[in-house]
Nucleic acid binder design. Structure first.
Lengths: 202, 202, 202, 202
DNA sequence: TATGAATGAGTCTTCATTCAT
DNA sequence: TATGAATGAAGACTCATTCAT
């Protein structure tokens, strides 16, 4: 049999990495970072644990690349961008955003939330990852802040310092997602409506 | 020289145990159970790791006794009872309860919340501790449910299935406490008011 | 380069396990079970201590499997069966049996004896191992009892309750083997003849 | 109350030491040396573990002094001397000696046997204790050898090199005592008679 | 590229020994 | 003399990482 050519190899490399990162995200989210064993990721990705070290230099790199990949691919980003262009009222956009955050279809996104949760206030988190988390947070803030302001103009959102509202709301959101997202995945719509009452006028 | 008498020994034992449990609560809360090292607790309590095993038979027992102690000392229980007798409207009582949960004087309470957080959905949690967590949850539910119902009669609380409201509210509360309580300890009153909007009428 | 195929791996695993069990038997026999350090077994087997846990789940399992393996390999069993068919008088068979028990080729057998020694009357011995020891004892009893009876009919063996004779003889045998088998490995034949005088007629 | 005077203190010191050594012998015999915990000895002696270090500098010293004390007090030595003067035939003396070794009344002596057993072939035994064991062995050899020779003259004992007979016999004896002395404590007389058949003519 | 055998640093736990009282 | 609190060295076991094939 002829050896694989360069393209095919590249193809395999690519598939394998995604296979690993996809498995890693879930495992990291389920068990936390330190408690995640390389061997568990390997099992989830149906490969040998040794192979992971062909594609990543360490557990931390698996984590970091997986997070980046999740953000790029699964793209909360894309979602946010599209949402920005939707023809909805500010509070409806916020609701859609929350629904999205809770949705299991966007499970990767929930993985990312839960992983980030786990990172917070751990002093041994590598700077790279901290930076990533910060940038992600900033992204959400940058998305929500104008919506809140707009909503306030429309009278849909209560009159409070917008930055503070965003802070309270995102803090709450990330708290409950990290805590037990499954609770919010039953009866989601109703629960989200109640959650939103925090900041809406009616 | 005469050995210490029983009183003095009892005194030392008592101090030492509290010293350990107090340190343990914080360390467990910060790092999660599995990731908490006995040596870290020892360092935090400024004793040698060996000594912990004079007072507790295992890491798990440290955890269990610490939780019990926190509940007893920090006495959510007493607080809840007194609050029940206060001359306040239902929604005011709920507010006071949330303020208490966030208060730094009851910082142990935040530790307990965060520890419990960490236990959930881990299948290897010892039954004893699961039972403890359940009983604590029940206590809060039993406290909150009648207040919610009463509040609904007064028209202060929105008309939703009370059990579901309690669920959503406690889930949110425990989520945000576990996530990052310090956020809620600045400007607490204002933030709590916003949080309460979830369930109060306008 | 291609990874090792299943056969080669099986080969390595097999070798390694035997290497470990062989070392373990000796170390357990020399030091007793509790006092045997995994690291000592590892050193004796010229591997790292970590590797032992690839092949066995705990010190106890090393012990248990090693005992089983020793019995299977060293095949007292086969020996006993063949001996049963030999064309010798009962007392000659018993003598051959004792010589075999002392023989250095069957030195593993001395390890097993010494290990069993160490287990007796320890209440924390796992049931599995107790069962194994019992079954081994039964095997020897079942072999010896008919020989003793036959010998008594031939007038070669003294007239005592056969069960008691077997008990005394096996107890003595296991005691001396466990104590210091090397003593019996010089001048074995003569010493065994003297030992056998316990139960033979003049 | 007046403080204790020098004599009384000396008295207490003496009692305490014996209390400890007596407990230690049994505990060492039951559990082996390394596996014996100071705390177990302390419990058996009904004192605190700290106190042991007032009387002995280390676990090993407890062991060593206890052995010496057992030999001196309980005095196999005295027994042997008296036995030497008894008006019995050589083989009867040997029998009496074996019965004594097995007797539970002389339990201390059985302790010593079992402890010594445990020491053998352990390379980390302190020289002091090795010397003690050797001297004890020599004592038994010196006692038995003339009896064997005498017995051979009387025709009671088989004609073999006396030194070798003594060796075989003592080796067997120490083996079975170390193995499971309780077995020999039922029906002792009959069992001992059978054991003696090894070296006797009838 | 892919596998899993092999290593060793790190964590819980036990226990001899020390020491304040 | 007597007690038991306190310490830390040592041993079982886990798991990230390396490496031969």
């Amino acid at each position: 049999m002829a050896p694989l050519n360069e393209n095919q190899l590249e193809q395999i490399r690519h598939e394998r990495k995604e296979q690993i990162m996809s498995a890693a995200l879930q495992v990291f989210a389920d068990n936390g970072i330190k408690l995640t064993k390389i061997s568990t990721i390997a099992k989830a990705a149906k490969i040998s644990h040794g192979l992971i070290y062909h594609y990543f230099s360490s557990k931390e790199e698996v984590l970091y690349e997986s997070l980046q990949w999740a953000t790029a691919v699964n793209t909360s980003i894309n979602f946010l961008e599209e949402l920005g262009e939707d023809d909805l009222s500010p509070s409806e956009k916020i609701k859609k955003f929350v629904l999205y955050a809770f949705s299991s279809t966007s499970s990767t996104s929930s993985y990312v939330f839960r992983i980030i949760q786990n990172l917070d206030n751990k002093e041994d988190t590598p700077q790279e990852i901290k930076d990533y988390v910060d940038s992600l947070g900033t992204m959400y803030i940058n998305f929500l802040t104008p919506l809140i302001k707009e909503g306030q103009e429309y009278g849909e959102i209560i009159q409070e310092e917008p930055e503070e509202l965003v802070g309270i709301f995102l803090t709450t959101l990330s708290g409950v997602i990290a805590d037990d997202i499954t609770f919010w995945q039953e009866n989601t719509e109703r629960k989200v409506e109640i959650l939103l009452r925090m900041i809406t006028t009616r």
